[in-house]
């Protein structure tokens, strides 16, 4: 078994691919959130930051392509694993009550697709603008604030980001397990690290529509 085979043909290899792409996407989510939190610093700051990103030019497209590739690998691996897992029990149990140890694990296969749909919507909504009712290219602050005043848009964002937090919580924890990072010194801490990041990211992201809705950010 060579490396490519090992990664592609085994379920553990696929999990490694998901973990690696997951880390990259996690890094993006953290950066994305930190960038967006500049909403609290006012229109000028946020729009300047957006300008700076736009000024990266071709590099921006390289990053975007990289992220898209990661999403692709992450999703394809997830779907393949899901199909294999479904096929692994052709006759179902009449009564199946496996101990409820990790609820988040069960949410991954539907939180994932919802998050993917959300990303597509989000791209059309706040990046391209085609799904926005009053999109002004370059004025990120305006685009965000005007749309989050619509309760159902804000609600959808909040819901999607809560799901993202749960997804990240389980993903992070799983990643430790997939990489075999299970040292006695931090074995127990892994769960708290995952929870900590999930809560921070969830709180940060959810706070934005909430703040607009509540009128804290105008």
């Amino acid at each position: 078994m060579n490396l490519t085979q090992g990664l592609y043909s085994s379920t553990i290899g696929k999990k490694i691919l998901m973990a690696v792409t997951g880390i990259i996407l996690f890094g993006f989510v953290v950066g994305h959130m930190l960038g967006n939190l500049q909403l609290y610093l006012g229109a000028e700051q946020l729009n300047a930051y957006a300008d700076k990103l736009q000024s990266l030019g071709p590099l921006l497209w390289v990053i975007r392509a990289g992220l898209a590739f990661c999403v692709g690998v992450h999703v394809v691996a997830a779907v393949q694993l899901w199909l294999r897992n479904r096929a692994s029990r052709p006759v179902r149990y009449r009564l199946f009550r496996p101990p409820e140890v990790d609820y988040a694990a069960r949410t991954m296969m539907w939180s994932g697709p919802i998050i993917l749909l959300f990303i597509l919507y989000h791209l059309g909504h706040l990046t391209v603008g085609c799904l926005h009712h009053d999109f002004i290219r370059g004025d990120v602050y305006h685009n965000v604030v005007t749309t989050f005043r619509i309760w159902w848009v804000a609600g959808f964002y909040m819901l999607a980001n809560l799901l993202l937090a749960v997804h990240l919580y389980h993903g992070l924890w799983s990643l430790f397990q997939t990489f075999g990072w299970d040292h006695p010194l931090f074995g127990r801490a892994r769960r708290w690290i995952a929870i900590g990041f999930a809560v921070l990211i969830g709180a940060g992201n959810v706070s934005l529509p909430l703040a607009v809705l509540a009128g804290v950010v105008r």
């Binding site: 078994m1 043909s9 085994s10 379920t11 553990i12 696929k14 999990k15 694993l81 294999r84 897992n85 096929a87 692994s88 029990r89 496996p98 101990p99 140890v101 990790d102 694990a105 069960r106 991954m108 389980h170 924890w173 799983s174 397990q177």
Partner: peptide, 21 residues
Amino acid sequence: VEAMEREAFGSCTNYRACEAV
């Protein structure tokens, strides 16, 4: 692992029911 993958077992999603039972 190679032998395990040849059988019709699924993958680990860290559900942890195995440990519990």
